[in-house]
Design a protein around this nucleic acid. Structure first.
Lengths: 222, 222, 222, 222
DNA sequence: CATGAATGAGCTTTCATTCAT
DNA sequence: AATGAATGAAAGCTCATTCAT
């Protein structure tokens, strides 16, 4: 878990100092891991700096030496998570270059859903907690990376091309992000893996197909 | 805004007493309106019972005579809002019975988006705050009402019918709910009204179209 | 339950006005009875003026028309109870005039214990609550009445007389009051009725016997 | 005053953490002492956590680091006091082994009364406040210790033995505890030191004497 | 007289943050 | 660097009491 990127947009939430020694790195990681544990065990409301420090096996004082405030803790956890998410999606997108768009859509959805459902409870808690702190920065970062990767991928579709690719892409991603969240918010995340991932893929394919057709000839809706 | 429904699932969050005098009714409404105002002005984190009471022009004691705890305030606001949302969607769905599914999809999306964008800031704040309190009850209630209304509508489509209607319907609604939220979370809600509502409609139509076709003869995707 | 004596020492705790109408008397009694009910059901800590009014079937406003503050409620309950206690003991003492002191002691103890154990839970709650409000007035009143009645009784003992009667009497009564309370405080009030009343009587008889003997001839202890 | 015993029965009222630094120990003691001071100065009703903290010269936060709630404060004071009381009585009982029971009774009463009258105001306030919080645990503990010590003592009386020693002992102690309290409740604690301790001793001696006689031959009362 | 809505001082408790050791 | 005792602002909530209706 590389917790030491400097990608944060809001400086106020950044970790206080860059650890150079092995001991510090371990401490920083322990604190982040403890944050997740507490989050999972007690929820956002009971996430206190003291409880995180205790679980990490350090003192509060030490915690504050690496994270200037409580929010930076949560910020860092999100940063890590979203970085991982973006990386995995980017990798898959790269792999799909040149394939038909149906496969691309399937791979995109499958990967995103897989990452989200691998640690269901953590996903859930991060969704919930996101409202309490401003994670717009890391989220936007992740989003842009995925948008870029996805658009680049679809541009190479063997059965393309698409008119208005960037609009299509943005729509697809917002739908993907939102729909997945919707299933988690409604406690229906288990349905995603079976029936509904397929439905989403199916929807994307129909959508892309119709967009492509329109580019050649016909059909208007709404 | 009728704030006196008794539809709440969780009793703990229900309003404490039914106002019997005219004075009380005014007080109750003032408190709810003040809750929204404070939410808009200061955000969830700074929503304190005292600040709500002050803005409502009453004392804290009075507030607690009608709402047993801070959460019930937020709960009531949500209940009202979601009830209104469900009612508006239900009405539109009823109006669309017997029309072609493309019009249905367009009407559904348009109405939902319209309600959400009418009071952008309130929508946003309710999305954010939903994580901090358990509004699963009212949300589920609203969801079920819309699901029922929507499914009933699509069942009457002049150019139907659809195989697996209930799965289609659930997918469409989850996508709609999630995607709209996604635009709000990313501060892009203004894009919804112009370009992207149309894209969503277009996606739904393609999806429904492909589902229908499958029911007659061919084609599988994903 | 005659709740309308004017014997209170502290004027602040007295009922606000003397009810002259039948309706008022009923109200006053209902309020006092409700006080006891609430005390029994919820304990002193949860005795609120509103809960008493509710249980009495009147409004808080009405309650305050008869009792100037919360303490006066409790004061009145105690006054009634202690008046009843004193009256019962006085009656028994009168009946015992001229009998041997062993019978007197037995009757005194038996009566006092009987009154206290008739409504165990109420006795307990009154003991507990006595610390939270100043009931010294009514208690002293009751005490003096019992002291007088008891001393007058022992003075007529057929197998008397006693030297230092007033000291003997005061000792016996303090022991009786205290010991009974002790059993209640330790949740052992059921033991009083069987074994321990007899022990107390036995102790009093031995004490009185030795005091009488001393008056004729010998013996000093401690 | 060793405030750090772990004898509490009810875990909810136990002190929160064992102080590890010298600073903490001082703080804990200061808080307990302040509790007593406030109790003496303002009574139970005005004992607020803030006032205790202020008088102790620490912040409320600090107070709560050592005592989890207001009740635990009072609990600790009682625990200390009752532990001291039991210890002193135990010591005296041990010293009296083998002596005649009259001396035993005198020593028992004298010691108990002495402890209670040494800090009259504190005794009074602890009696009063005991109703507002559940100190049954510490009280029972103290009671059992004294019962054991007293019974063991009387068992060795040079002029014994007694039939039914355990009933005698229980009676004597309940009488002692109750009677002393009675004098305090009636604000007559000063009388205890002079006239009335002697009366109680005298009563116990007569009682024990009569009990002993019965064991050899004759006499029943009540 | 009765009502009950309104009041608001005051209480307990939490927890992010600091800083002397 | 690490510790953890101390801080205190700030929050949620209660309830005795008043007074317009």
């Amino acid at each position: 878990m590389n917790s030491h990127m400097n990608t944060a947009i809001s400086a106020a939430y950044n970790a206080r100092k860059e650890p150079r020694q092995a001991r510090s790195t371990m401490t920083v990681d322990a604190i982040l891991e403890a944050t997740i544990q507490v989050l999972l065990a007690d929820g956002t409301a009971r996430l206190t700096t003291t409880s995180v420090a205790n679980r990490a096996g350090v003192s509060v004082g030490t915690l504050y030496q690496y994270y200037p405030n409580k929010q930076s803790l949560f910020f860092a956890v999100n940063e890590n998570y979203l970085d991982m998410l973006a990386s995995r999606v980017e990798a898959v997108c790269r792999d799909q270059h040149g394939k038909p768009y149906t496969e691309m859509a399937a791979a995109l959805v499958e990967t995103y859903v897989k990452v989200k459902t691998e640690r269901r409870d953590m996903t859930r808690v991060l969704y919930l907690a996101a409202g309490e702190i401003n994670v717009a920065g890391p989220v936007e970062m992740m989003t842009r990376r995925i948008e870029a990767a996805s658009e680049a991928m679809f541009a190479t579709a063997s059965d393309g091309p698409f008119e208005n690719l960037s609009t299509l892409n943005l729509t697809i991603l917002n739908v993907l992000f939102g729909t997945v969240r919707s299933f988690f918010d409604r406690n229906m995340s288990d349905l995603l893996e079976y029936e509904f991932s397929a439905q989403i893929v199916s929807m994307f394919c129909a959508y892309l197909g119709s967009a492509k057709m329109r580019s050649v000839g016909s059909s208007t809706v709404a």
